[in-house]
Simulated scan of single mutants.
Amino acid sequence: MNVGIVAQRGNERAATLAGKLRETLRDDTVTVHLDTATAEHLGIDGVDVSRMAENDLVVSIGGDGTFLFSASGAGGTPILGVNLGEVGFLNAVAPEDAVHEVREVVNEYLDSGEIPSREVPRLEATGEGDWSVHPALNEIVVQGAQRGHGQGIDYEIHVDDVEYGSGHADGILVSTPTGSTAYNLSEGGPLVHPSVNGLILTEMCASHPMPPLVFEPNHDVEIRVTNAAFAVVGSDGKQARIDLPETITISVSSEPARIAGPSPTFFEALGKLD
């Protein structure tokens, strides 16, 4: 079995725990691969995060940002999230329980060849210009080069070929339930329980906004952007510059993310938003 471990960059506690997990797990049946930065900190060889999908399990140690970073390279490999003392929306395992919980998942795989996990959707964005961005666990954002007065984008939004909204805005955000507590919430979008089978569309500081829309994920969303020299499409914080005019299609990726281990208590985790 191959286990990948990604620790929060620059965090001594995370790196120390990663090293402890590596020493605890390594035996004739388990090979452990640490991300490059963590491995360098510990004085050993590591692998790039983009190769984490080559493992049977990925362990993320840190906050939700570290989990998203791990997920960017994990593909369909189950991810187990370890927090560093504060319950997050993606990291349900406490640091003091990490060795036990990871060993339980490893033993399950060695016994059955499978890792129990729950699927969560990811979003993808494509354009007429034959480009795409990396699938997003939280959100896809289409925005202007800068935010604020005199910036932003002119746009039309179509859902299933019917116009939903148009005008000028700082940007347009489409989120998964997993991401509803992140960028979506800061833009006035609703909190959505992770068990809800839906997506959220939120206009960002629009001139004539529609209310945020929660809709089933089988609907097609197209965003036509016409003005300015270029727009920016962001996927979980990673940005790509897109020449205009362009029509961006946002849809659910064919490959969901898979989360292993215990489920976070959603309403308990909401406390960190206070």
Rank of each mutant, 00 (worst) to 15 (best):
V3R: 02
V6G: 08
V6N: 06
G10D: 05
N11D: 15
A14E: 03
A15C: 14
L17P: 00
T24R: 10
D27T: 08
D27W: 05
D28A: 15
D28V: 14
V30R: 01
V30F: 07
D35I: 06
A39F: 07
E40S: 12
L42A: 08
V47Y: 01
S50C: 09
N55C: 15
N55D: 01
V59Y: 04
I61F: 10
I61H: 03
T66E: 01
F67M: 15
L68P: 03
F69N: 12
A74E: 02
L80Y: 01
V82I: 15
N83K: 10
N83E: 10
F89N: 01
F89G: 03
N91G: 03
N91Q: 04
A92L: 08
A94M: 14
E96C: 09
A98N: 00
Y109F: 15
L110Y: 02
S112H: 11
I115L: 07
E119K: 07
V133E: 09
P135C: 02
L137S: 03
E139I: 00
V141Q: 09
G144Q: 08
G148V: 07
H149A: 15
E156M: 10
H158K: 15
V159P: 07
H168P: 07
I172V: 11
S175E: 06
S175M: 00
S175Y: 02
P177W: 04
T181R: 02
A182G: 08
L185W: 08
L185F: 13
L191K: 00
L191W: 13
P194T: 04
V196N: 02
I200M: 09
C205K: 06
L213W: 07
V214Y: 02
F215H: 13
E216P: 05
H219A: 09
E222Y: 05
I223Q: 00
I223W: 03
R224L: 12
V225K: 04
T226Y: 09
F230R: 11
A231E: 10
G234V: 05
G234K: 06
K238L: 14
Q239C: 12
L244V: 14
P245N: 10
S251L: 03
V252D: 10
A260G: 08
G261V: 10
F266K: 00
F266W: 13
K272S: 15
L273S: 09
